[in-house]
Design a protein around this nucleic acid. Structure first.
Length: 553
RNA sequence: GCUCCGGUGGUGUAGUCCGGCCAAUCAUGCGGGCCUUUCGAGCCCGCGACCCGGGUUCAAAUCCCGGCCGGAGCACCA
């Protein structure tokens, strides 16, 4: 027994810098030798004895001893389990099903990315299903914006289905439910019905004859009725009152952006969704856990038609702070002129993030990392920015940008021409030129009188006066002097030939200032780093200068 | 109120199903250091978690019971 314990103790000691732990050693031993589990109390003293002997050895002696025993020093590594779906037989059919009320936002990206990821992982088909059965909440231009957003994000859609194209199909299946006696037309006031429902009491409509329900159904479709709905017969005593006889169709006469006033009866999601999920062959359905009860409701549809249910995966709510996500708020703000458009950098739409210089790969990656667990998740902008930085840093040229600029005149210094690398790690990017001629811009609130500063890549100065224009005197060249004097290192640009720049910040602020002259060579859509400021994407370039959108630090 | 889902470093996570390999992984954040001077990137060191109580067990982040906290649904929206 000691012979079996010894190598375990030696390995444990190696892992923990020469000190093995008896409990851990016992655990590993029992895991590998289940027959001793019932004798744990007897084994422990033996383990302790072996561990005590091992802990007397030096780390080198421990390694030597282990090698003498012919044991591999290295510990096996555990494979990391990736994202997986349950019960995948062959391929999968999945769907991303937004309501076309606006372009996609960061919250939508989770469902879009995860569906796409699994379809790519297992093979199969991804269907984009636009759920527009509420005419009041459809924005016509959203149909195309959503497709554009998915393209940009790298989500590959195999088929597009629009629910407003399928209204008559829903009518057909609705009629079948009535014919089977599983649905009925109800003309009760919704509040009246709710009171009855909460008491577990059926309403007066529930037991109407099938023939009468069918007659009323035709009248609904012909527009002859208002204030009626079709209800599914479930269980009027179900312990969850919201599952009792919920509605599956209703009258809505608002003209639809795509179908006009052709229809006045629309299905509700707890009907159209299971019908479509079945007919379109879903194998797996990802949805937020706010829809768990809806899955229970939809189970009745599957049962009544005798359909097999797909695999449902419910994931926790993704909470996203510090940004505007509400489609109705965004729409209202755009209409009122508060926002410039759906890509205003203050908004959480994908096109706003794109405008800021966030890469689709970064969004894809973070949504994979968030995954499908049922715990609620708080979105980490920091993590998104860290992933994005990995993607953009190697290609991002560096420039100086002076926001809130103050002119600084420096006496006692000679003219100087500097050549700096565009990128610290990429010499092939070439160089940029800064010409010192006595006058520079620095960030306005960085200067204090009688203090030494280090102008980056230039020299040390002492500031004498800070007014509308600041005055300084050349002190020395040596960087070590700056360090010795704990001088702050600040960036600067020559006043001459500087370029006007505005940066739009996600919090709405606009930082204005100047960049160095070689900055003028950048093109729209370039992503660059302003040193000591952060990464930005070039948004606009004209006679008035440049407009950039701030990504992150 | 009814019905449900959840809780692992400051943030995001892996691990829980099948108890030991967990002295709990990885990322991010923060502090310090190294590396051509900022911002970064890279490397090194450090800080910081299994919501609480009880039980089962030789052994619990993991299984059981209770509590607390967070979230969701109860729309003729999705």
């Amino acid at each position: 027994m000691e012979e079996k314990i010894l190598p375990i103790a030696l390995r444990n000691a190696i892992k923990y810098n020469g000190k093995a732990n008896p409990k851990a050693v016992l655990g590993i031993f029992l895991s590998e030798n289940p027959e001793y589990r019932s004798k744990a109390k007897e084994v422990m003293p033996i383990v302790e004895k072996v561990v005590e002997e091992v802990n007397k050895l030096s780390l080198d002696e421990i390694k030597k001893k282990l090698e003498e025993l012919g044991e591999d020093v290295k510990k096996k590594e555990k494979k990391e389990k990736g994202l997986e779906l349950p019960n995948v037989k062959d391929k999968v059919v999945m769907r991303f099903a937004p309501n076309p009320s606006g372009p996609l936002h960061i919250g939508h990206a989770r469902a879009a990315v995860l569906n796409d990821y699994f379809v790519k992982k297992y093979g199969g088909k991804l269907i984009l299903r636009l759920e527009d059965t509420d005419p009041k909440r459809v924005l016509p231009e959203a149909y195309d914006m959503i497709k554009e957003d998915l393209d940009w994000l790298g989500v590959k859609v195999d088929e597009v289905v629009i629910q407003s194209d399928r209204i008559e199909l829903y009518y057909e299946y609705g009629r079948k439910l009535i014919e089977m006696g599983h649905a009925y037309v109800c003309d009760c006031n919704p509040e009246e019905f709710r009171e009855l429902r909460n008491k577990g009491v059926p309403c007066k409509c529930r037991d109407r004859a099938i023939e009468d329900n069918l007659e009323l159904w035709e009248k609904m479709l012909n527009g002859e009725l208002e204030n009626v709905a079709v209800r599914l017969k479930t269980d009027i005593k179900h312990k969850n009152p919201s599952i009792r006889d919920f509605p599956i169709f209703r009258v809505e006469k608002t003209p639809h952006p795509r179908t006009g006033d052709k229809y006045c009866v629309y299905p509700l999601m707890n009907f159209s969704v299971p019908v479509d999920d079945h007919l379109l062959g879903m194998t797996h359905v990802l949805r937020g856990k706010d829809h768990i009860v809806n899955t229970e409701k939809q189970a009745y549809i599957y049962k009544y038609f005798g359909w097999e249910m797909p695999e449902f995966i419910h994931y926790g709510i993704l909470k996203i702070e510090d940004i505007v996500l509400s489609t109705s708020s965004m729409y209202k703000g755009i209409k009122e002129g508060l926002y410039s458009g759906w890509d205003d950098v203050r908004l959480g739409t994908l096109r706003a993030l794109r405008r800021r210089g966030i890469k689709p790969e970064a969004i894809y990656e973070i949504m994979k990392r968030i995954g499908i667990k049922q715990a609620d998740v708080k979105f980490s902008w920091e993590n998104l920015y860290a992933i994005n930085k990995e993607l953009i840093d190697k290609d991002a040229r560096r420039f100086f940008f002076v926001w809130n600029p103050k002119k600084l005149i420096i006496e006692g210094a000679e003219k100087k021409v500097l050549k700096l690398r565009m990128h610290p790690d990429r010499p092939e990017f070439g160089e940029r030129e800064l010409i010192f001629d006595g006058e520079v811009y620095v960030v306005g609130d960085e200067l204090e009188e009688n203090k030494m500063y280090r102008l980056m890549e230039l020299f040390n100065i002492v500031v004498e006066k800070v007014d509308d224009i600041a005055l300084a005197k050349y002190h020395s060249d040596d960087f070590k002097i700056a360090r010795k004097n704990k001088a702050k290192i600040i960036h600067w640009i020559p006043v001459k030939d500087s370029v006007k720049v505005k940066v739009l910040m996600p919090d709405g602020e606009i930082k204005e200032g100047f960049a160095e002259k070689d900055f003028a060579k950048v093109e729209v859509d370039d992503i660059i780093q302003f040193e000591r400021f952060g990464f930005v994407r070039i948004d606009k370039k004209d006679n008035d200068g440049f407009v950039c959108c701030y990504a992150h630090r």
